[in-house]
Design a protein around this nucleic acid. Structure first.
Length: 486
RNA sequence: GGCGGCAUCGCCAAGUGGUAAGGCAACGGUCUGCAAAACCGUUAUCUCCGGUUCAAAUCCGGAUGCCGCCUCCA
């Protein structure tokens, strides 16, 4: 079974057939660099990162392009607010973008072009459009004329007359048609501008993606992605201007991810409920966010709320503990992994799920089943099952890592989680260790009452003590349960 | 007003014709001095009404509710 993807323009799942055999050209709209990234950006990045990884797993030679919009009104405004140049604004937020993406283990795309480094290509594109009669000049600006581009509205599926009738389209006298959009805009005296045959100024929003995707991927290319909100007007306009200029299909498959809501409310700056990635990471492990997003199909809206995140956090712990347990059993011996057919079935189902329009939620279900299989085998014990456990564990890690999960070393994961928790509780590691020692003494003396008091005291701080032959270790209590008690 | 989407166990969430994956939580059990983790077991007929079909959560029609887009936005 081959990969199927849902194509926005046809509204259907289609068999994925790349333009060139064995190669995939993928373009995802990146960010406008004027602020820190929020978890909506993270979702988009994670969705297309997952697709990118999966395409590579399937053996495609993938060229993945993700742009930076580094010139735009918001950047100019920001530059005034922060009293730094617009270029410094760009640099600053590109830097922060990388910090966030690295923390989330988002793989680096093949190319990450910046708009301002491709002004020449944009100018050439605008000139072509002018020459072909798809664009016109008005008051120093250049507009794209939708009139003689017959496919306008196909992507977003909007009838033109009704869009025009829509109350929210701003009427601009300079436009021949209210839906015409700017390709090039004249700059005010103190704004950045570039010389062009049709007057100095700066590019409109959509033109950069047309220029850069075409430059790096050619036309047509395979997949163009982004958030659902980009379908109109951004992608509709990109498509119109590119196809009008080149006379050929722009993109074969359009893929769009759903939104992130926060507590059932749309996340937006005007409501003031945006959650930045860096703020999230102060509270939770980065993979909690990844697992959370992968638990819902990428096209569906997803509601961010504390309970769901804490549930996800518990689920992620389960995955890590499974690996920990498996390694514990394997490490003592030199083990040759021995295949196990029940696991091979799960592996097959995992790939079938991924092939079905990247159904990561279903794929994850199989990962959890595999986790159960490993734990069960470990429970039943017996040296004879160890080669199987080694096999299952290898498979488990290969599947989770395809989803970008379980990147951390177990010790790192655990200790980060513990430190994060101690900070949250305002506890010192040394005093915790002291309490544990004290309890161990009490247990030796069979003073279980005191031992239980200490256990209870620590439990109230979200710390669980784990007794074993080797001594007493501790873990962070499942946070959702801990919070419910307080 | 136009276009589109969604409604599945307490919560989250897969599932597009053959009698409901998975996660979290809960309860009972095994294990443990007590716990934890893990494992075993238990918990749904899919918003409502009508239709098509041998057969529908899945297709069609209608109702109700929720949401998104049409303006910068991942």
């Amino acid at each position: 079974m081959g990969l199927k993807v849902y194509n926005t323009i046809s509204g259907k799942k289609e068999d994925f057939q790349p333009v060139s055999e064995g190669k995939v050209k993928l373009y995802a709209c990146g960010v406008t660099v004027y602020d820190y990234c929020h978890i909506g950006h993270a979702r988009s990045a994670i969705v297309f990162d997952t697709l990118y990884r999966y395409l590579m797993t399937k053996g495609y030679d993938v060229t993945y392009v993700r742009n930076f919009t580094d010139i735009d009104d918001k950047i100019i405004n920001r530059s005034a607010e922060e009293k730094i140049s617009w270029r410094e604004v760009g640099e600053k937020y590109i830097h922060s973008f990388y910090e966030d993406m690295d923390a989330l283990h988002i793989l680096k795309p093949t190319h990450e072009p910046r708009a301002t480094e491709h002004i020449d290509e944009m100018i050439a594109l605008v000139e072509t459009l002018l020459r072909k009669g798809h664009a016109y000049q008005a008051g120093g600006d250049v507009y794209f004329s939708i009139e003689n581009f017959k496919g306008y509205g196909q992507l977003s599926k909007r009838p033109l007359d009704e869009m025009i009738a829509g109350a929210r389209v701003e009427i601009d006298d300079r436009k021949k048609n209210p839906l015409d959009f700017v390709l090039w805009k004249s700059s005010k005296p103190d704004e950045p501008s570039w010389d062009a045959p049709f007057g100095s100024g700066r590019p409109g929003w959509h033109i950069e993606c047309s220029a850069m995707s075409t430059k790096f991927l050619g036309n047509p290319f395979d997949i163009h992605g982004g958030g659902k909100d980009l379908i109109f007007p951004h992608h509709e306009n990109e498509r119109a201007q590119t196809e009008a200029a080149t006379g050929t299909t722009f993109v074969k498959y359009w893929m769009h991810n759903g939104f992130v809501n926060i507590e059932k409310e749309k996340m937006s700056k005007s409501i003031g409920n945006t959650l930045q990635i860096r703020d999230f990471l102060r509270e939770y492990h980065p993979e909690v966010l990844r697992l959370f997003f992968l638990s819902t199909h990428y096209r569906s809206p997803v509601d961010y709320n504390e309970k769901s995140i804490e549930d996800t956090n518990s689920a992620l712990h389960r995955l890590y503990y499974t690996v920990e347990r498996a390694f514990e059993m394997i490490k003592t011996k030199d083990v040759n992994p021995l295949p196990y057919s029940d696991a091979d079935v799960l592996e097959k189902e995992f790939y079938e799920a991924m092939d079905d329009d990247c159904n990561t939620a279903l794929a994850l279900a199989h990962v959890f089943e595999l986790s159960k299989m490993i734990n069960k085998m470990a429970d039943e014990g017996g040296d004879s099952s160890i080669p199987h456990i080694a096999y299952l564990n290898n498979l488990f890690l290969s599947l989770t890592q395809q989803l970008g999960l379980l990147n951390d070393d177990l010790n790192v994961f655990e200790s980060q989680e513990k430190m994060r928790h101690l900070t949250r509780e305002g506890l010192q590691l040394s005093s915790l260790e002291e309490a544990i020692l004290e309890r161990t003494e009490a247990r030796k003396n069979k003073n279980y009452q005191k031992a239980d008091e200490i256990r209870k005291m620590l439990l109230e701080k979200g710390i669980i003590l784990l007794d074993s032959q080797k001594g007493t270790d501790w873990r962070v209590k499942n946070i959702s349960a801990a919070k419910g008690e307080r």
